[in-house]
Design a protein around this nucleic acid. Structure first.
Lengths: 333, 333
DNA sequence: GTGAAAGCGCTAACAA
DNA sequence: TTGTTAGCGCTTTCAC
């Protein structure tokens, strides 16, 4: 590995001037620049990022922490972050904590030692606790979908109520008026609460009275949908369901297939988040466009890394994607 | 951020002795060690990893490159790698290339600048080309499921033929003798070829003649399964299918549901890789335990990072997970 | 437009 | 067991 010193020795030009060329600074004569560039090519020189970091105090790397890399929710956001950062000087890397809070906290501490240029934590840790953890980070941080009461960092949040509203509105648009909602701990989960509020808002706005018996609390997994399906599809005989998340919807569909009820044909089902394409084309959805949220977060981070000192921003923005294939035609098999 | 110099000033002990304490070297008196440790605590000191890296020439970070972070195949392997590395001194981070070969190659070059301690590339690049890319990496590399003809690095490979064999054998065990196989470009894809060979091997070993008309080439996506299902389920009236991968199986199931054929009840379907739990419990599978493969790869990498200079290893090992729920009982709904 | 020199925070000889 | 010294490769004053 050649160094700036080797370049100096080869060209007879001083280290400082060579550094200027490498960093594309002005005030270098064209001729000198050319000589140096040639030497760089010939010696196959690449700068040692750590040596540079020693001086600048920064590793040009952005750390993205996620609770579960398998979760499409995180995945999509990551793709957005990477998209924005790929044209920057920073290398985005991901750390997967598997929702292990100990690991996450240990990492936040280690982050200081590595001198990351920026951090985007999307951990399992609750908003308030997370805010505490990162409060004395010495690099910019952007929070996604966490809204701690007090923080000196920027936050980007999707409009969950809008998602709930739109998902429900699509069902209404398809002709339904009796719509069940599978919610999740709307007391403690901000996201679930907002989605549920959106569901209520859509009904009310369309003059449909809210029937509390059609709002059912469940968990966020597939099994919940499967377990609740008999009640909803058979006992209550509901033919339109707005689920909090797609896994629950998938569980309902699974049960439905077993008793011969097909989504889009015999009933319709929606959820308040985007659905992995591979998963199902039968689920209507309205959900935050996570990729866009990721891009926006990366944008904010870049501004901070470039030295912006504006007061912290809290951006809650609408970037909702809607998918509604409509009722299926009669089965042609 | 306090430095070793601050510690020296505060304790009156030299920087080198302090460095010794930090690195847990012997030959430091208990008393000195204690004084230093106290100062570390009081000043909330953490070492600057880049400064250390300047001297040692290494960033204590392992780079995992994957083509698609959303793919459960990569995901599971990553989990294994992380598991093994979490107790080490190295921070595993993931880079997601989205199968962008340009990005991947650019990263491999940048990797040198960052002085990563080790790299595990699981890219979309073919084995031979990848081998070329990394040949002059200046840190240890371990390849997973790539077997270039010539490389100076260790390789870890799962037994794909065994997966094909076992998946088929499970179908035979469940009483089937007429078993279709959806394969994929077995001329060019080593993995698909080996899986197909396993399928053939299982049939032959159980005295079932191979019916070439039951071996169908397709792609690796869901749509392929959906498109081929009419031929297999309706025209050929086959009631046991061994797919190359799970997405194809999912496509078949999707079509089946539409015409009222339920997996496990009316027919059985298997594939030669593990299936994401959330995806379906209806698919029999036998597949490499990717997590174990990841762990093994990380183990090899650790040995190299610790200075092992043994000749490169090519480990092809059996770590196959089998899942077979058996025929479903009569539907009780 | 260029160069000399200092220094970032640490480790690794070498002396003591 | 401890301290002194010399760098690692780069950027950044400050002169010229």
């Amino acid at each position: 590995m050649s160094t700036i010193k080797d370049l100096a020795a080869r060209t007879g030009i001083s280290k400082s001037t060579i550094s200027r060329v490498i960093n594309n600074e002005p005030n270098v004569s064209e001729k000198t620049r050319e000589i140096v560039m040639n030497a760089i090519r010939e010696l196959n020189y690449t700068p040692n990022i750590m040596a540079r970091g020693m001086v600048t105090g920064k590793l040009p790397m952005v750390l993205i922490i996620v609770g579960d890399i398998q979760n499409h929710y995180f995945n999509n956001t990551i793709v957005g972050i990477e998209k924005r950062l790929s044209s920057s000087a920073y290398l985005p890397v991901i750390y997967n904590s598997m929702y292990d809070e100990k690991k996450e906290k240990r990492l936040m501490e280690m982050a200081g030692q590595f001198r990351f240029s920026g951090i985007i934590p999307m951990t399992g840790i609750g908003a308030e606790e997370l805010a505490e953890c990162i409060e004395n980070a010495d690099c910019p941080v952007v929070l996604i979908n966490k809204r701690p009461r007090k923080t000196r960092f920027d936050c980007v949040i999707g409009e969950e109520q809008e998602a709930g509203y739109l998902a429900t509105a699509e069902l209404i648009k398809n002709g339904h008026t009796r719509i069940a909602h599978i919610s999740y701990d709307s007391k403690h989960s901000r996201i679930s609460r907002e989605r549920e509020n959106g569901y209520r808002e859509a009904l009310e706005e369309h003059g449909i009275p809210v029937d509390e018996s059609l709002i059912i609390q469940g968990k966020l997994d597939m099994d919940t949908g499967y377990q609740l399906a008999p009640k909803i599809l058979e006992k209550l005989k509901v033919r339109a369901i707005c689920c909090n998340n797609y896994l629950t919807a998938a569980g309902v569909i699974r049960y439905g297939e077993e008793i011969g009820l097909h989504p889009r044909v015999d009933y319709e089902i929606a959820c308040c988040e985007t659905v992995p394409e591979v998963y199902s084309k039968d689920i209507i959805y309205a959900g935050a466009d996570l990729e866009v949220i990721g891009e926006r977060a990366a944008e904010l981070l870049l501004q901070r890394m470039n030295g912006s000192h504006e007061p912290p921003q809290r951006i809650s923005f609408s970037a909702t994607k809607v998918y509604n294939p409509g009722k299926a035609q009669a089965v042609q098999k």
